[in-house]
Simulated scan of single mutants.
Amino acid sequence: MATKAKKPSHEAYVVTGEGESAFWTKVGGVWPHDDGKGFNVELTALPVSGRLVIRERKETIP
């Protein structure tokens, strides 16, 4: 198993609804494998509906 970086490179969301009325819920983090051929996904919740969407992580300024 690849060693995870301190912060994930991407974030996992469950999206329900469409367009402007879509509701995004963050449910986990995503780390790339060292060989660049896959990802580890850690979910903090298991969705029962909606779409699982992976997006690049945006750095936030504290």
Rank of each mutant, 00 (worst) to 15 (best):
T3D: 05
A5V: 11
A5Y: 02
K6E: 15
K6Y: 07
K7N: 08
K7H: 03
K7L: 12
P8W: 03
P8A: 12
S9P: 04
S9Q: 14
H10M: 13
H10P: 03
E11G: 06
V14N: 05
V14Q: 08
V14P: 05
G17C: 00
G17Y: 00
E18G: 02
E18V: 12
G19C: 08
S21W: 01
S21C: 01
S21G: 06
A22C: 06
F23G: 07
F23P: 00
F23I: 15
W24M: 08
W24E: 14
W24N: 09
T25D: 08
K26Q: 14
G29V: 14
G29N: 07
V30S: 00
V30R: 00
P32A: 07
P32W: 02
P32F: 02
H33Q: 07
D34N: 10
D34C: 03
D35G: 09
D35K: 06
G36L: 10
K37H: 10
F39P: 05
F39D: 14
F39M: 13
N40T: 15
N40K: 06
N40V: 14
V41R: 04
E42K: 08
E42M: 08
L43E: 06
L43Y: 05
L43G: 04
T44S: 13
T44C: 03
T44K: 06
L46G: 09
P47H: 07
P47M: 11
P47T: 14
S49Q: 10
G50I: 15
G50S: 12
G50E: 12
L52P: 10
V53E: 10
V53I: 15
V53Y: 01
I54P: 06
I54C: 06
I54E: 06
R55M: 15
R55T: 15
R55E: 15
R55A: 15
E56Q: 09
E56N: 10
E56K: 12
R57A: 14
R57T: 13
K58L: 13
E59N: 06
E59Y: 01
T60F: 01
T60D: 08
I61G: 03
I61V: 13
I61T: 12
P62Y: 02
